[in-house]
Write a protein that binds this DNA or RNA. Structure first.
Lengths: 185, 185
DNA sequence: AAAAATATGTAGACCGATCTATTAAGGAGT
DNA sequence: ACTCCTTAATAGATCGGTCTACATATTTTT
């Protein structure tokens, strides 16, 4: 794959990521992707011959990895487990607010839309969540209840992010932050 | 409003509720609503002259009240706070699994899709969440940290429901259930 | 009570816009 | 010269929404 080709491919993926996170699978049109990325229609189908499903599937996995990397970085520095999770909530809250309440969880909307529709996309979302859960479990390693706790923390983060987006306010994130100590005691 | 008219209005709302919960705002087409409800196009626009936004707004609020009523019923019977929340999780888990992983939170998908789009719909979702939060706060009444706790429990429920739908499995709900005691201690 | 008049609701054809996807041809890079 | 990639026209389906004609209740008038 040539240099130019790879660049457009990435531009298309980035535009898709952005649009899907804002409007979901059905709400993000390929025409919008084309307009936002600057790539023409034919290029889209050259790089993603299987169409919208392939495009969004790849963009979901890509977004998942980006969050994964950011969390992994936080995991290395944080002191206590509670401080680490607080850091994640702060990071996601910043991202959400700075984007004008558009960028919450890049997977959630598609996961909800596609749970009963496209098998491959449902799988992509499931995989991303599993990978985040694994990252949390590693960070909480050692505890006897690390499995339950990792799922619970992930649910708490996702739920708080959902409420924050719905209310257009950081308050849910902050309030949840304050209850972490009890959960991780 | 005559009897017949009210009946079709309700049939339309019920069909909308079902479709929106499965596919979201953009994914639920009015043609599908018409087909599922059996009502003709003209009736839809007679009962909901402001179109799709009005239709989905009303259906969201309606669905919110239904969940509210179910939770209120549970609140009366449950013994401890933890047992009460466990009951809610069991109820929602049953609903989700029995529907073939289609019916999770009737508000979440639209809330995520519309946070940065339609103001009235964003408000509708925000209101429904606020009313659920108030119901939880009432049930937890007395505790000094009831405010924080209500938001945290709601986030936990929403997050667990999201993960359960994404993975098509009750496991997240069950694991979260097991950690409630620590949170509510 | 019968008839006329007025709401109330149903029915579906139709509109322009937009959707995803395909196609055949040509330009750019190596 | 040959592959990689872009370009834009186009297809066919579906989208939300409007419109007119019709049927069915409900009330008003005689």
């Amino acid at each position: 794959m040539g240099k130019k080709g790879t660049e457009t491919r990435v531009r298309i993926l980035e535009a898709t990521q952005e649009l899907v996170e804002t409007a979901g699978y059905a709400g993000a049109g390929l025409n919008q992707v084309i307009a936002a990325s600057g790539a023409p229609r034919g290029s889209l189908y050259f790089h993603f011959p299987d169409g919208k499903d392939q495009l969004i599937g790849e963009s979901i996995r890509r977004a998942g990895q980006a969050i994964d990397a950011a969390v992994e970085e936080l995991a290395a520095s944080g002191a206590s487990a509670a401080e680490f999770v607080e850091g994640v909530l702060r990071l996601l809250g910043d991202r959400l607010e700075e984007s004008g309440w558009r960028k919450g969880c890049p997977v959630a909307t598609v996961a909800l839309e596609m749970a009963a529709a496209s098998e491959p996309l449902q799988q992509a979302c499931s995989d991303v969540y599993a990978s985040w859960e694994a990252a949390l479990r590693r960070r909480l390693g050692g505890r006897p209840d690390a499995d339950d706790l990792a799922v619970t923390i992930l649910a708490l983060i996702e739920g708080a992010l959902l409420l924050a987006k719905a209310h257009r306010s950081r308050e849910p994130l902050d309030r949840v932050s304050g209850r972490l100590a009890a959960l991780l005691s």
